[in-house]
Design a protein around this nucleic acid. Structure first.
Length: 457
DNA sequence: GCATGATCATGC
DNA sequence: GCATGATCATGC
């Protein structure tokens, strides 16, 4: 008694009827109760559409070429909305995919039309999923815009090339912009053969990266307007990075003030000058860089790097405060921190102070965390923090300052943990073990940032 | 000059 | 009021 539809329209309109419904009300077969794994996809497939669990690997609605997907949406502390994670698509068969082109690729043939069920992912007070509160927020039939497709095509080419070069074992999700190749399998040990190398490669699936999914959520659910800085025509022969670099090129060597005047922006000495200026150069007014379509879809985060006139880089680079709850609950592999760093690209806007102490624009650089740094130094710091969280973090007073035993810049030379907040009292938090500590952030060492950006000076 | 704790400024 | 980017301040 599965759902019968006559047309795509009918399928879409039936899907729409699920909006607002709670998953437990849809789950007539008690799938959540049985598996206790919250297989939202299974509930929609089996209870809402009435398909059996042993369905084939083909597009779910094969006759109309539509693939059914469910994906979690979370409300962040500040009320903004985001995709909980990447959307995982089909597994890449390296042996088979290598002989295809984009049009005949398994990615395109299976996923060119996606029927996506967005649901709210709610956690209980212990941080575990609370399935009784999962609710279908929105259902959409997603087809890729021409522009997204140009970027996806660049991504697909890169993945395809690595397979052709016998480098499937070096694929990483950070390589690409929208279409990723994420690991998939029961364990990390799930390996596959590749056509041009005897080295076994990790099993990977195509994915729509988290930044792209968050951009979709913002557009479809929050109806946020995103402002593009590129167009289809440009993207046919340039990457987003090249386009950004071109926009900055004419301002290199000029001081902050000069650029502000050239762009007719309001003068200020504020700490967010660099941000105002970056928006201005990219043709956006205000500071809302995340409103830029490409920044949102490609998950590009802006960071300024300011060198002293002597060429010293004084300041380390800070990130968000650590989510100790997440660290307590998750191992590195499933941690928020890993997910953030592997899915984010950073746009470094690099300045150097001149003799008058004004900041001169030196250049920009798009960078993502290399796998080796992620799997080694960042993981090491994570594991250490998790260990300290279990043993109890030690804090003591030296003069007017408190000290603690969290990993410092000497820990591995790349990253460290340091307090960040309005002040000690206001930034006090309670750790999962009940201990009180001022908020702590993750930082990249100044020396490490210098290595990454020195070529721009 | 560096390491690291502390806090400012802005925007939501 | 708080999160976050940016920067200051102290001590070695």
């Amino acid at each position: 008694m599965s759902f019968k539809y006559e047309s795509i329209e009918e399928l879409v309109s039936y899907s729409k009827e699920a909006e607002g419904k709670y998953l437990i009300d849809i789950d007539t077969k008690d799938i959540i109760g049985k598996t206790n794994k919250g297989s939202v996809g299974a509930v929609i497939e089996q209870s809402y559409f009435g398909y059996s669990a042993n369905s084939k690997a083909e597009a779910d609605f094969a006759d109309v070429g539509i693939e059914l997907k469910t994906t979690g949406v979370i409300r962040q502390k500040r009320g903004t909305i985001a995709a909980k994670e990447r959307l995982v698509l089909n597994i890449i068969n390296y042996m088979d995919e290598v002989g295809r082109d984009f049009a005949t690729s398994s990615f395109w043939s299976k996923n060119n039309k996606l029927l996506i069920f967005f649901y709210t992912y709610v956690r209980d007070s212990n941080g575990k999923p609370d399935y009784s509160k999962f609710q279908i927020l929105k259902t959409i039939l997603h087809e890729f815009s021409e522009k997204d497709l140009e970027i996806i095509r660049q991504d697909w080419d890169l993945i395809h090339n690595k397979i052709k070069l016998g480098l499937a074992h070096e694929l990483s999700e950070g390589d690409t912009q929208i279409l990723g190749a994420c690991t998939k399998g029961a364990s990390k040990k799930s390996m596959r053969e590749q056509p041009f190398s005897s080295i076994p490669a990790k099993q990977r699936a195509y994915s729509l990266k988290q930044g792209y999914m968050t951009a979709l959520v913002k557009q479809y659910i929050d109806h946020e307007k995103l402002i593009p800085i590129t167009n289809v025509k440009e993207l046919k022969y340039k990457t987003v990075e090249e386009i950004i670099k071109e926009k900055f090129a004419q301002y290199i060597g000029k001081t902050e003030l000069e650029i502000i005047k050239l762009l007719n922006l309001k003068e200020s000495n504020a700490k967010n000058n660099a941000q105002l200026l970056t928006s201005g150069i990219l043709g956006i007014t205000g500071t809302k860089l995340d409103k830029i379509e490409e920044f949102s879809k490609l998950n590009i985060k802006f960071k300024t790097v300011t060198y002293e006139k002597t060429g010293i880089l004084k300041e380390s680079m800070s990130f968000e405060n650590l989510n100790f709850q997440d660290i307590y609950l998750n191992d590195w592999e499933t941690s928020e921190l890993k997910m953030k760093f592997e899915s984010t690209q950073f746009l470094f806007v690099i300045f150097q102070k001149n003799n008058e102490n004004q900041k001169v624009l030196k250049g920009v650089k798009l960078w993502n965390v290399p796998l080796t740094i992620l799997d080694n130094e960042i993981r090491e710091v994570y594991v250490e923090v998790k260990k300290l969280l279990a043993d109890g973090i030690v804090e003591w007073k030296e003069g007017n300052r408190y000290r603690n035993n969290l990993p410092k810049s000497g820990f591995n030379g790349v990253c460290h943990i340091r307090p960040k907040g309005q002040n000690r009292v206001k930034s006090m938090i309670v750790l999962p073990n009940g201990q009180e500590l001022p908020n702590q952030a993750f930082w990249f060492n100044a020396k490490f940032i210098k290595e990454l950006t020195l070529d721009i000076l």
